[in-house]
Every structure is written in C-alpha cells, then in structure tokens.
Amino acid sequence: MILFISFESLTSNGAGGTGKIAYEVAKNLSAKQQPVKLIVSSKGKFTTPFTSTPVSLWTHYYKFILNKFVSPLLKPYQKRHLEERIFDFFCSRHIHHEQKLIFSTTPFLPRTFKKAKRLGIPIVFFPGTPEENHIAELVSNEAKKWKVSSSDVYTYKPRLNIFNQGMKLIDHVICHSSVIESTFRNRWPDKNFISCLGLLKPGCEAEAQIAQGTSFRVLYAAHTVWLKGLQYLLKAWNELSAHGELIIVGSIDPSVQQVISRDFNALKNVTFTGPVSGIDEYVKNATILVCPSLIDGGPVTVLEAMRFGVPSILTDACGLKDFIHNGETGWIIEAGNAIQLRDRLMACYADRDSLQKTGAAAQRMLSDYDFKAFIENIASETVALQK
C-alpha cells in the first residue's frame, strides 16, 4: 500500500493546493489496482473512489477547541504550528509495516517520518512552495532592507526546526517547478530529486477576452507578504502613475503595510481593495497582471489571468516561468528589479495593441495544458519508488 498524506482538507468541492495532487495521484493509482490510502486534516462530505480518512476521528473536536479557546491567545503562525504538530501526532498512528511508500505533501511530520524510517518505509515529499529556510532568509533580508521588523509563519523558528527535522528523514523530493527544485537542491543536496514539471491546477475552459480600449489597468492580486514583492511594483509605479491605474487586491501583512504608508503614500492612481471574496471581476477587466514575487511556487493568479486572456508580467523566481514563453505568452523579469519592471510596464503601455495577442496566446497554452499527463507522470515516478 502507498500512504498519501496531506495537511489539506477534503471538502464537498474536493481538495485544494497540493492536496489535490495527492488526491489525483492516489486516484490514478487506485484505478490501476494499486492499494492506496489518503490521510487528510479533515474530511467533509466529499467521497473518494479509494480509502481516505481524516487524520483523527477527533479532528472536528480539537479544531473547535483550538478555534474557540486557543486561537485568541496565539498569533496566526503560532496556531498554524500547533495544528501541524497535532496533525503529526495523529498521523504517526497511521504508519504500519505493510505500507510500501509514504507520499506526503507536507514535510512537517518528524514523528510520522521517524516511525516510517524505523519500519524501512521510503518517504516521498511533493512540495507546493519553495524551501522554507530559503524563504525565511528572503523575508528577513527584505524586512532588514526596508527597515521594519517582521514576525510571520516563514521566520518562526520553532516551525523551521520542525521543517528541518522532517526534511532530514525524507528520501525523495518530486518537484513540479524548476524554482522549487533549485531552492531544495541548494539546501538538501543529499536527497533524490525527481522533476515532474506541471501546473497544480488543470487546464480550464477559456473565458471571452474583454476589449480594453484606451485604458491601462495594471492588476496585482495576492495575500501580500514580503515574498510577493509588492514593494518593488510600487517603486516602479512611481514613474508610471500618470499613464494608468494600479489596482492592488487582497490583504496586506502589517509590516508591509508599514512600508507602504511610510514610503509610498504619495503615489497616484493606486487603488487598494483590501480582502475580496473573488478576483474574477478584477482580472477580466485588467489590461495586464503583475506578479513581482521574490520567490513563488506559482502563482495561481497568473493562471487566472491566462483563463481570461489577460497577459502577465512575472519574475524569474516564479514557478510558472517554466510555462511562459518570454514575449509570446507573457514577460519574465528579474526578481526584485524595480527598474526592469518599470521598463516592461512602459513598453506594454506603449504597445497596447500587442497585449491582447499575448493574452490570447497564454489563454491557448492553458486550455491545451494536459493535467492528466502531469498526474500520470507523478504516479509513474511514485510507483517506482516503492520498497
């Protein structure tokens, strides 16, 4: 049996994030008569064609207690860390000698992995984001550069320690982007790395492009933390504000907001929407999407832009750069380079006639993407790693 583990939950709509990959690979192998089991954080009414179960029958109870009584006493990243520790405790009870392989989309399982190691079970990790120590260093450096203090899930040392304990026990790492793979290879060169390039979301039906006319609307959409690089977009916008409108969608980390209020409060033609329930309306009315991330496994917003035929500018630190043909289906710039970003936006403003063509090419690429082949590739590699 292959045991799949995801910290995500199964809801009535299925699984999200890397949990979807664990689910799809398990389903693929189950259809080939390979015994599989999927462990998730919690499970709603969603049914699976193979064995799946919440990590504990007590999940709903301990989550209620956490949310009702413990959460008010903790910072969000401390709560996340506690939830991961509880998940690991219960998950370790699912490890048995008859299992031939562990396929996990979370590395925060040192207790679980230690038990698997004692039983001689190989461990495969499928990361959805770049390496945690790499991220922590980037966040710390950015906060120092912009002269603010920052405490978040990426720099919380107890959580980083658990990550490192888990990584030491992992045998194989399957990576879906070159960006993710490079960050893990640099820190963990002793692991066996397997490259399975692909998108975490299946190709979807294209939406009709909207003619933009003479307007120039630049869209940025994210839950903004230091890694998203919004500070460099705002720096670039300083010389572009007279040429269009910058729309910033999503919540903003307090330390980043501190820099915005201090250094960019005089910028013109900038709209901050705050948190929103969905971004479709913003995307389809945008002229261009900008993802100035300093490191990013995706981002998903680029896929949303592709769906509506809206072209994107993203950095060379985004995982999706593997699927963008620079100048044909989007543009790739150097991460953290506000000058390059400014120049690219100016070029797009000067040649708006080409934007719709570039967006349409990106839309076709997404529509033609073969998600099933991606899952088949991961499934084949996974089966070959069984003990």
Rank of each mutant, 00 (worst) to 15 (best):
D190Y: 03
A206Q: 14
N238I: 09
W237R: 01
G229I: 08
W237P: 07
L219W: 04
W226I: 01
I180G: 06
G213L: 07
L230Q: 02
Q212V: 11
G198S: 11
A236M: 06
E239A: 13
L230H: 04
C204N: 08
H223N: 14
G198C: 07
A221Q: 00
G244E: 04
G244Y: 00
E205H: 05
A221N: 02
V225E: 13
R187T: 15
H243E: 14
I210E: 13
L219Q: 01
A208V: 09
T214P: 06
I180A: 07
L233P: 04
T183E: 08
H176R: 05
W188T: 05
H243P: 01
C175R: 02
R217N: 15
A222L: 00
P189S: 10
A221H: 04
G198V: 11
F193K: 00
Y232I: 10
S215D: 15
T183S: 15
I210V: 14
G213R: 03
Q209W: 07
G244P: 09
N186G: 12
W188A: 05
A221F: 03
H176E: 15
W237T: 04
S178E: 15
G198H: 06
K235C: 10
C196V: 12
A222N: 07
D190W: 07
E181V: 05
K201E: 15
H243L: 15
E205S: 11
L200Q: 09
G203H: 05
T224H: 06
N192D: 15
L199K: 06
C175P: 01
I194V: 13
A211L: 08
K191M: 12
Y232R: 06
G229W: 03
S182Y: 04
I180K: 00
K191Y: 13
Y232G: 00
K191E: 15
L233N: 00
S182I: 01
T224L: 09
F193W: 05
S182H: 07
S182A: 14
W188V: 05
V218A: 00
V179Q: 08
K235W: 02
P202Q: 07
S215F: 06
L227H: 02
A221M: 03
Q231P: 02
Q231G: 08
S178G: 10
E207A: 13
A211W: 04
G213N: 09
W226D: 04
Q212G: 06
P202T: 10
R185K: 15
C204T: 13
F193S: 08
G198L: 13
A206V: 12
C196K: 01
L240I: 14
A236E: 07
F184C: 02
G213T: 09
D190K: 10
A236N: 01
E205L: 08
C196A: 14
N192P: 01
V179D: 03
A208E: 10
S241I: 04
S182T: 10
W188D: 08
V225P: 02
W237K: 00
G203F: 07
L200G: 09
G203P: 09
K201N: 13
W188N: 13
L219S: 04
Q212S: 12
S195E: 12
W188G: 03
L197E: 14
Q209N: 08
L233Y: 02
N186I: 08
Q231A: 15
A242C: 07
N186D: 14
L197W: 06
